[in-house]
Design a protein around this nucleic acid. Sequence first.
DNA 1: TCTGGGGTCCTAGGACCC
DNA 2: TCTGGGGTCCTAGGACCC
Length: 367
Amino acid sequence: MTKSIPAKKYNIQTGETIYTAKAKCPELIIVPPNYGLYMQCSRAFGDILREYSPLVEQYSIDEYFIDFTNMGRIYADPVEAAYIIKERIKEELGFTVNIGISTNKILAKMASELKKPDKVHTIFPHEIADKMWCLPIEELFMVGRATAKKLRSRAINTIGDLAQADLKMFKLFLKSHGVLVWNYANGNDISPVRENRRTMIKGIGNSTTISFDVEDKTTAHLVLLSLTETVASRLRQAEYCACLVSVSIKTNEFYSCSHQRKLASAKDCTNAIHEIACELFDELWKGEPIRHLGVRVSELCRNYFMQLSLFERDYEKQRAVDRTVDSIRERFGPDAVFRSSFLNSGVRFRSGGTIDDEEYPMMSSVL
DNA sequence: TCTGGGGTCCTAGGACCC
DNA sequence: TCTGGGGTCCTAGGACCC
């Protein structure tokens, strides 16, 4: 998943396979992730930050924005304050952080990523040319693999090249995304630091890479069930129903495709969602060996009351079963009860899901 | 060159309506 | 049978984030 700083010295990349990483460094130590611990650290980190400003936004599990506007009355210099915060985190929580300081979020974020670890950087507007424009285009927020390739094909290799390119040409070339990255390259961003509003989530999905190639419909349906178990229970826990179900496939040749269906009435039953997922799968699958399967629900609405359909079956009994199973799993653990169809099947009876949906920070690629 | 799993947003084409 | 212009909704795929 990611590399430590000592591992980086061996040129080990984030997302590299364990096999090639071990080739580069045979004594490499591989540690499984521990999201419970990360969440705990993340919260403690946020608690400290909130002592320094009333306006703190969590951006991801390991990133926060702090609005320091008007804090000049208490801290003469934001850089000085950053050092105080950074040292406190190191002392009290035992890990290091990088802090980026500027006049808006994009510049602060770019500054925070300059040199690691345990550093404080600024990229104020007058420093953009010196500190940011020399960087390769890939370093700019929102320039991923695809955009980088397009930019480099136009001889735009650094953030400075992008900043000085003609905006009109960019509109034609990369549409709205072109305008966005051009603005970021120039340090233009007016997005406010926001309270972590409890935004409506847009969708819930789980997917898994199967440890063997699936070549028959029955096994595929069972994997879809194990994914739907988690998706549907997360959906119910969040108190939503969904109006759209989608299924995605990746074949053993890495070809991916997806299929979705809008529902006549919103649903949250495991069985109902699974049934639709299977229909979608059957329509989509052409018989290739499958490496990866995904189930996703979206177009969510609250589940407090719902429109029933005259033409569909009554799901109330099914919902009662789901509620019962959910409560058994809540009281006695997620493996307290599971479907016998998984017995001796080689398929896990539940797959995917985050450890604690309630508290997991919602990621967004928008500042 | 495709690691894996969780998301969000955008775009383009087609169907359909008046 | 297709005209023209306005619109919405649905679907599939791609791009980005951590």
